[in-house]
Amino acid sequence: MTQDKPHTGDEATPATDEPRAQVEATREELGETVEALAAKADVKTRAEEKTAQAQAQLRDKASHVVHVVQDKTPEPVREKAGQGLQAARANRAPLLAAAGALIALLLIRRSRKHR
C-alpha cells in the first residue's frame, strides 16, 4: 500500500506551475517590449547617436580624401603649400587684417550696388 503524504499547502502542483511559468515568461517579454519602446521614444538620444555616427563617417571620409590628395599632389606643390602655410601662421595678424579689409570692401561695394 501507499502512504499518503500530508498536504501542507506549500507544495506547488503541476497544474499551478505551468500557468505561473507562462505568466513569468509573459512578464519578461512585456518588460523587454517596454524597454524597446522607451528606447524608440527617446528621440534626443537617438538623434545624438545618429549625429555621432555621421560625424565619425565624415571624419573617415575627410581623412581618406586628405590621403588621396596628398598621394596625388606632386612634391613641389606640396612644398610650396607647406611654405605658404608656415608664412600664414607666422603672419596671422597682417593676414587677418587684409582679409577683414577685403570683406569690408566687398560689403561696401555690395551695399552701393543695391541702392
Rank of each mutant, 00 (worst) to 15 (best):
A12K: 08
P14E: 06
A15P: 04
P19T: 04
A21C: 03
V23W: 14
E28T: 13
E28R: 13
E29P: 00
L30H: 11
L30T: 08
L30V: 11
G31S: 09
E32Q: 10
V34Q: 13
E35I: 07
L37D: 06
A38C: 01
A41P: 01
D42E: 04
V43K: 03
K44G: 14
K44E: 15
R46W: 03
A47H: 06
E49D: 15
K50L: 01
K50N: 04
T51Q: 03
T51P: 01
T51R: 02
A52S: 09
A54S: 10
Q55I: 05
A56K: 00
A56I: 01
A56G: 05
Q57C: 09
R59P: 01
R59N: 13
A62H: 15
A62P: 02
S63N: 15
S63R: 11
S63P: 02
V66Y: 07
V66I: 05
H67R: 15
H67S: 13
H67L: 10
V69A: 15
D71S: 08
T73A: 06
P74F: 10
P74Q: 05
P76D: 04
V77H: 02
R78T: 13
K80E: 14
K80I: 06
G82W: 00
Q83S: 12
L85Y: 14
Q86L: 14
